[in-house]
Simulated scan of single mutants.
Amino acid sequence: LSEDLINLSGRKFHAKRNHISKFKNCYPDYRFEEITNSNKEDAYKVMLDWCAENEIDIEHYEEKNAIREALDNMEEFKMHGGIVYVKDKAVAMTLGCEISPIAFDICFEKALREYDGIYAVINNEFAKTLSSYKYINREEDMGIEGLKKSKLSYNPIILIARYNATLKNDGN
């Protein structure tokens, strides 16, 4: 529920509130901005820095192209996003779009690990801009155990079972 991601109320969000509090204490000069044409290159730079931090070969990283296209066509794709800055350095970005009048989908989220608590901060700050939606879809974990654990830590109210299917080749 967007309300949960905005307010982080109750015991189940205690750890998230602690991460955010620690971040704010370490970086009291942080700021959140929605992505616009004037700062979209900062969002792209976060992705490039994230790739470097994670030793990802940027030349063969296909998500890079998807993020570039999304940023270049935000208005046409009806996408919205946000950036967290520490001083003047962009350290986190998120980008998504409406999937229905009551649901918003987070398509991309990147943050620099050296800023402890930054993922909780970008998630919470951006959720605040999405209060008109009942649901925020944090998308698929793609079978990545760490990503699955992170997504489950937000206490989703709906989990949809995923299946893989293969076409049986019967020789005809």
Rank of each mutant, 00 (worst) to 15 (best):
Y119C: 10
D49S: 00
R68I: 14
G171C: 15
E34H: 05
L71H: 12
Y119W: 04
T36A: 12
V84A: 08
G96I: 01
S38H: 00
I99V: 14
Y115P: 03
N169S: 00
F23N: 03
S38V: 00
K12H: 07
E53K: 09
L5R: 07
K89W: 03
G81C: 06
S9V: 02
K64S: 06
E139L: 10
K40R: 11
I102W: 11
Y133V: 08
G146D: 14
Y61D: 02
R138K: 12
D42A: 15
N137F: 09
A52Y: 03
K149V: 06
A120K: 02
G82F: 06
I35T: 06
G82S: 02
E109N: 15
G146T: 12
S21R: 11
F23R: 08
I56H: 08
K128F: 11
L130S: 01
N164T: 13
L167S: 13
K87E: 14
K128V: 12
F104S: 10
D105P: 01
K110S: 01
I35W: 05
E114Y: 05
H19W: 08
A92M: 01
K87T: 13
A90I: 03
M74G: 13
H19D: 13
I102D: 15
L1Q: 13
Y44V: 03
K22G: 09
L130N: 00
E109H: 14
I158A: 08
N73M: 03
K78W: 01
G82T: 04
A165D: 04
I99A: 06
I35Y: 00
D105C: 01
D72C: 03
I136W: 08
I157H: 06
K168C: 14
L152P: 00
A103W: 00
Y61G: 06
F13V: 02
P28F: 05
E69V: 07
K22F: 00
T36M: 08
R17L: 02
V91S: 05
K148N: 06
H60A: 05
L5K: 12
Y27V: 05
R113I: 10
Y44G: 09
H14F: 04
E59S: 11
